[in-house]
């Protein structure tokens, strides 16, 4: 499986760097979000609950997670393209490991997330965000964002295998990712959000990642909260990763 993961990963990485327009888009989009939302909600820091931190510093880890979520929603389109051609069928009639077929694609998706995360941080810091936490904070944020990318990437791949349609995939992905973005602490501190949003956020993997990132970047992190949320996120990623690999069987039953 590891060898096949590597081969499949190589295939998708090669395909991505051959599409410079797509790379530009995936990088420009988070930059716009960060700067746009940063301007739009600047006044929020004057609300109680934000302390003296700047909004851009608050927002940056949130936009990291939002970017990971939104970009990964598209992950399944590569599977749809493979199904529209005969590539998926040829692969599934070959000895390729199903786990490798899934993991290789997700790894290439996580690589995109990694680059986006670094870019969002760079822009955030250029716009004035400062973090008291050390290098560990950045590393936790990067790992958490890659987990978000992998979890929602594998959900997107599973939806692709089940629906086999680009339109259905995009529709479902939008339907899921917008509520997950807003029912979280990505843009707003939980203390100023309505109670029900905070309740919903407790079950939101994107919020787990955002909390872990913000905590670990703070001057005095609550490490038990960081690890707990990372652990939830990891468990969630593994479960959806396993389920989405099962979706190959459902696809094969329908061809």
């Amino acid at each position: 499986m590891i060898a096949h993961t590597g081969l499949v990963f190589g295939r998708w990485m090669r395909a991505s760097y051959r599409q410079p327009a797509l790379i530009a888009f995936t990088l420009v989009q988070p930059a716009i979000w960060l700067l746009l939302f940063g301007q739009l909600f600047q006044g929020v820091v004057r609300l109680p609950g934000f302390g003296d931190s700047s909004y851009i510093a608050f927002l940056t880890p949130g936009i990291v997670m939002m970017t990971a979520l939104m970009t990964s929603g598209w992950s399944g389109t590569s599977f749809v393209q493979d199904m529209e051609r005969g590539v998926m069928d040829r692969m599934l009639a070959s000895p390729v490991s199903r786990g490798g077929l899934m993991a290789g694609q997700l790894l290439s998706n996580a690589t995109t997330t990694l680059i986006q995360t670094i870019l969002v941080f760079a822009i955030g810091i250029a716009a004035g965000a400062r973090y008291d936490g050390g290098i560990v904070g950045y590393l936790v944020t990067i790992v958490a964002s890659m987990l978000v990318g992998t979890a929602f990437g594998s959900l997107s791949n599973a939806v692709a295998l089940l629906t086999r349609q680009q339109e259905a995939l995009i529709g479902i992905s939008q339907f899921v990712s917008l509520p997950l973005t807003f029912m979280s602490s990505i843009m707003i501190d939980p203390t100023v959000a309505p109670h029900w949003v905070n309740v919903a956020a407790r079950f939101n993997p994107v919020d787990w990642a955002t909390i872990a990132a913000r905590q670990s970047l703070a001057a005095d992190p609550n490490w038990s909260s960081v690890w707990r949320h990372c652990l939830y996120l990891l468990a969630f990623t593994l479960i959806v990763g396993w389920l989405s690999t099962r979706a190959f069987r459902t696809y094969q039953r329908s061809v």
Partner: peptide, 15 residues
Amino acid sequence: SIGYVPQKSSSDPMA
């Protein structure tokens, strides 16, 4: 033991 050439083209267009 087999080679399978599906009805639809089975090559990766980006490669």
